[in-house]
């Protein structure tokens, strides 16, 4: 686990977020918070896997975040370059090394959620939690935020992340017999694989002329 970097992060945080961070660590216990950061004005707090359900309880209770915006997952694995050797440059080239976003991550998979308060304007908190890479799983929020049900089912089927204590983890969008987790970076997008990219330069050169490097 990475060390606490609150001190250096705190210097770049807005006073409102510092105040909110103070309330979060008071409600949750400072040891449950691994890291925190500010992402374009929003506070992102990364909590320990064991404290995920406690974090929800604190949000709904002491912090007054009564509204669940979403729960989702992130696969931080670098995106494989699609069709690179064939000259296909259609999809954006992402960095090849595995880097993590705001508040960092301990591994490939993360679950993140956003909660807000309907009574306080401009309120909200993004929570992230690290997962085990081999068998990613975390506690379910359904008993605290009933709306977590569908979001967790979606995250489960799209990224293969388990939710302990979820009443029925079934497919939400995909057919029951679907295999694989489409949002994982190593799951290929078939629409881009079955057809050659029509953007390749397709201009026959003059007879006897070398193929020039096409400059855009």
């Amino acid at each position: 686990m990475s060390e606490n970097t609150e001190v250096e992060v705190g210097a770049t945080m807005s006073p409102e977020n510092l105040e909110l961070l103070g309330r979060v660590s008071a409600a949750l216990g400072a040891e449950a918070i691994i890291e925190s950061a500010q992402a374009v004005g929003d506070l992102v707090v990364r909590v320990a896997n064991a404290s995920w359900r406690e974090a929800a309880k604190a949000c709904r209770g002491a912090l007054g975040f009564n509204y669940l915006s979403f729960i989702g997952g992130i696969d931080w694995m670098p995106a494989p370059v699609v069709g690179g050797e064939a000259g296909d440059t259609s999809s954006p080239v992402q960095p090849a090394e595995q880097t993590y976003g705001a508040a960092g991550s301990a591994g490939r998979f993360q679950v993140f959620a956003r909660v807000a308060s309907t009574s306080v304007p401009r309120s909200g908190l993004t929570l992230k939690v690290d997962l085990d890479e081999e068998s990613p799983a975390v506690d379910s929020w359904v008993s605290i935020y009933p709306g977590a049900d569908w979001h967790e089912r979606e995250t489960w089927e799209m990224l293969g992340i388990g939710f302990n204590g979820h009443p029925s983890l079934r497919h939400l969008y995909l057919p029951a017999e679907f295999e694989g987790n489409p949002l994982r970076k190593d799951f290929p997008l078939l629409a881009r694989e079955v057809k050659p990219w029509p953007g390749l330069v397709n201009v026959e050169p003059m007879p006897g002329e070398d193929v020039e490097e096409e400059a855009e």
Binding site: T89, S90, K195, W197, P198, G199, N202, V203, E204, P205, M206, E209
Partner: peptide, 17 residues
């Protein structure tokens, strides 16, 4: 053809003097 998000433009050409 390169910028098309749907890959629905197909172009072929040749060079001439």
């Amino acid at each position: 053809a390169r910028q098309c998000p749907d890959w629905c433009i197909y172009i072929e050409g040749h060079k001439e003097k």
